[in-house]
Amino acid sequence: MKVPVSVIRLPRGPNGTSRGFDPSSPRYQALSPMSISTVGPGKEGHLEQEQQGRVALRERYLHSLLAMVGHLVHFTLYERVNVSALFDASDIDILNFQVSDLQTPLGVHREALLRCSDIIAYTFEL
């Protein structure tokens, strides 16, 4: 029999809206639009090609997220922790995954939120 485990609520993020990002963090700086240089001779063609590549990769990733909904997903986390859960949704920034029936080494969580920064890899079957 699976043992239910209580959910731990995390404190609010630094901006008070519970999103939890820090504008001075290296990740935020790398993802900001200002980090992409659009000025310079000969960079227009290269920039357009890079943007098209990013668009294609983003679309494929979003389609894979849609395909995961309702499926059992196996997550590999840091420290060799492997967990499984039914994938439900992702937030708009794809920083967190909302899952249900999370099976951990300590027990089963009915609902949980996984931070994408803690996930090394995940797999699922179609």
Rank of each mutant, 00 (worst) to 15 (best):
Pro11Ser: 06
Leu47Met: 06
Leu126Tyr: 09
Ser37Met: 07
Tyr122Cys: 08
Ser35Phe: 01
Gly20Pro: 03
Leu126Ala: 15
His46Pro: 00
Val55Gly: 01
Arg9Gly: 06
Ser84Ile: 02
Thr76Arg: 11
Leu72Gly: 08
Ile36Trp: 07
Pro41Ala: 15
Glu111Gln: 13
Phe75Lys: 04
His74Thr: 15
Ala30His: 04
Arg19Asp: 10
Arg60Ile: 02
Pro14Glu: 08
Gln103Trp: 05
Gln49Asn: 12
Phe97Ile: 04
Leu66Val: 04
Tyr78Trp: 08
Val81Cys: 11
Thr17Met: 14
Gly70Trp: 06
Gly40Met: 01
His71Leu: 13
Arg9His: 11
Thr76His: 08
Gln52Cys: 00
Gln103Leu: 08
Ile94Tyr: 01
Val99Gly: 09
Glu59Arg: 15
Phe75Trp: 07
Ser37Lys: 05
Leu77Ala: 00
Thr38Phe: 06
Leu126Ser: 13
Arg27Tyr: 15
Val55Asp: 13
Leu65Met: 13
Tyr28Pro: 02
Pro23Trp: 03
Ser64Gln: 11
Pro4Trp: 01
Leu62Ala: 12
Ser32Pro: 09
Pro26Lys: 03
Met68Trp: 01
Gly16Pro: 02
Gly40Tyr: 07
Ile120Thr: 11
Ser100Gly: 08
Glu79Met: 09
Glu111Pro: 03
Tyr78Leu: 09
Thr17Ala: 12
Glu50Arg: 15
Asp101Trp: 03
Tyr28Ala: 06
Val73Thr: 10
Val55Cys: 04
Pro41Met: 15
Leu114Gln: 02
Ile36Ala: 14
Leu113His: 10
Tyr122Gly: 00
Val108Cys: 11
Lys2His: 06
Asn96Lys: 13
Leu57Phe: 11
Ser32Tyr: 06
Glu50Gly: 11
Ile36Glu: 08
Leu102Glu: 07
Phe21Met: 07
Ser35Asp: 05
Arg9Gln: 14
Gln29Arg: 09
Pro11Ile: 01
Leu102Tyr: 06
Ser35Met: 09
Leu114His: 00
Gln49Lys: 15
Leu65Pro: 05
Val69Leu: 08
Val69Ile: 14
Val69Pro: 09
Gln29Phe: 03
Thr38Gly: 13
His63Met: 14
Arg19Phe: 10
Arg12Met: 12
Phe21His: 13
Val99Ile: 09
Leu114Val: 05
